[in-house]
Simulated scan of single mutants.
Amino acid sequence: MSVEPGWYVDPADRDTRRYWDGEGWLGAPIPVDATPPEGPPPPEPAPVAAPAPVAAPAPVAVPAAPPHAGAPVSGPHPGQPGGYPGHGGPYPGPPVGQSGPAGPYPSGPGPHPVRPVGGPGQPSVPPPGWPYPTWPARPPEPRPHGLPLASYGARLAARLIDVGMLVLLNTAINGWFIWRFFVEWSAPWQEYWRRVSTGDLSNEPLPPPGEQFGGLLLAVLLIATALWFAYEVPSMAARGQTFGKRLMGVRALPVEADQPLGFGRATRRWSTLGMPTLFWACCGFGLLLQFLDAVSALFDQPLRQALHDKRAQTVVVQLSGARPESGTTPRDRANPPGDTP
């Protein structure tokens, strides 16, 4: 929007008036309470050239520092906020979107691009009066290899299914050792239950368990750990999935590439969660370690990695129904699965 030529209060000095010719300020200012003349001011006489001084040795030239990119320009600046008579917006300036002394002007309502201030390596800040740019909403969740992260509920359900499968395996293979272990433990347990039922407050020690109690406990824990290793590690190394993960449609992948885990990485991943089984007999210390590992994914951002994921550098993703298995169908590198609807 252009402004008609005329005398207006100088925004740089409210005690003076200057003539606006439609494109810029013209002539010298006059006092604000003085009656302005009709039309533009007379042209100022050209300055009389002074006689040339006697030549003297020229001093060494020092390059002047460049003006600060964010410093305000002296005098009236078309982009500065202010007003002119009869209007509430900014006074005349270059059209919106064109470049001014400090860079391009905003072409619409904010947020506007940040103008660099200072030299290279210095932070960029917006000009005075402009709001700092902020993220319009919460950052998007990462999609490793074009796939969404598996929810904690899906991971927990898959783990419970795997625990059920391990219980069945231990019942079939480790069942005799478990039964013998409870037989050896029956004497102190029955005496303890008798005292609780009858209200006996005797301080006499409980009878010791059988002689084979310690050996049976070690055998039960070793067999249970070996069954867990045999159940989980080979399938995770080849496909990144156990039986529970396949039912829940989740898969473990390396962070750096969409490929099988391999035996070494699958072993490192399992050992952080499975090896503490050997410490169950140490006042439940092994169970405490496994519980901390299981809940650690709740507090990890942004990849929701549990402690065993961090050790093996893996991430658990949710598979889509149309996604082909890796290594069986060539993938289009230009359109990886999960990036397109």
Rank of each mutant, 00 (worst) to 15 (best):
S2W: 10
G6Q: 03
P31V: 06
V32K: 03
D33T: 11
A34C: 02
P37F: 12
E44Q: 04
A50P: 14
P51N: 01
V54F: 01
P59L: 09
V60H: 08
P63F: 03
H77L: 05
P78A: 08
Q80F: 06
Q80M: 03
Y84A: 07
G93P: 00
P95V: 14
Q98N: 07
G100D: 05
G100A: 08
G103N: 11
V117I: 11
V117Y: 12
P120Q: 10
P123K: 11
P126T: 04
G129W: 05
G129A: 00
W130N: 02
W130S: 11
W130T: 06
T134V: 15
E141F: 07
H145V: 04
H145C: 01
G146E: 01
A150K: 03
S151L: 08
L156C: 07
D162N: 06
N170R: 08
I178E: 02
F181Y: 15
F181E: 14
V183T: 11
V183C: 00
R195D: 13
S197Q: 14
S202T: 14
E204V: 14
L206W: 15
P207T: 15
E211K: 10
Q212P: 01
Q212I: 00
L222C: 15
A224P: 09
A224F: 03
T225A: 15
F229R: 01
E232W: 05
G244W: 00
L247E: 13
V255C: 06
E256N: 08
D258P: 01
T272V: 15
G286W: 12
L287N: 02
L288K: 07
Q290A: 11
F291C: 13
A297L: 11
L298M: 10
Q318Y: 08
S320M: 10
P324W: 08
S326H: 08
S326I: 12
G327E: 01
D332I: 09
R333M: 11
P336L: 00
P336I: 00
P337G: 06
P337T: 03
G338Q: 03
